[in-house]
Design a protein around this nucleic acid. Structure first.
Lengths: 94, 94
DNA sequence: TAAACTAGTTTATAAAATAAACCAAATATA
DNA sequence: TATATTTGGTTTATTTTATAAACTAGTTTA
């Protein structure tokens, strides 16, 4: 009856990250931090988990002289997110 | 922007329990266990947490000679569930 | 040049989920 | 009629996860 929810996505902060990334070409670490109001440490950890799951790719570069981390959702990540939303609907009767 | 999700409800098993209870007058422990495919131990713990949060009431009695635990969602629980669904929608853009 | 700030990562701690072990009573089986 | 086995749970221990704190490396500003 109830589908198992993707645990990688279900975590609140990772869900927030994914929901930002699905509708964005790419997003900077600092932007995600601002939008989610997460601490840098927590964000760093959760981004790494999403990357390890293959749901996002993390790009490190520089903006001027300052380091800059940008994130992009992968095809796999987009699909997983859609699947998660569908699974969740069965819980919420949406 | 993103509302904080109710942590009590967000847990996968508790979400499954709540989603069952919102559309049922009451449900037996064994019924919930069957539907959610949770272990008895995990279910026991999560039901207690929902009760402590004031989201359900747990009733202990007997069905014939066997012990029987039944759960009912409270008004507060119903409201919290509705709030959770609304908050979640902002994450999922539903 | 020292203080404060930016952009993070790593590590330690707290909280949560889950599993394993246990218990009491009922029922089925040899 | 003993004795397994099953039912319906609870309690406790273990694992996993989330979060916070501490740290690094470099930059900007006073």
């Amino acid at each position: 009856m109830l589908k198992k929810l993707d645990a990688i996505i279900h975590s609140e902060l990772r869900l927030a990250i994914m929901s930002l990334l699905v509708s964005l070409e790419n997003a900077e670490f600092t932007y995600i931090k601002e939008k989610t109001e997460a601490t840098a440490g927590n964000l760093s950890v959760q981004l790494t988990k999403l990357e390890e799951a293959g749901y996002i790719t993390i790009n490190k570069g520089f903006k001027g002289k300052m380091p800059q981390t940008t994130c992009i959702i992968t095809k796999q990540g987009r699909e997983a997110f859609e699947q998660y939303v569908n699974d969740l609907k069965s819980y919420l009767k949406l």
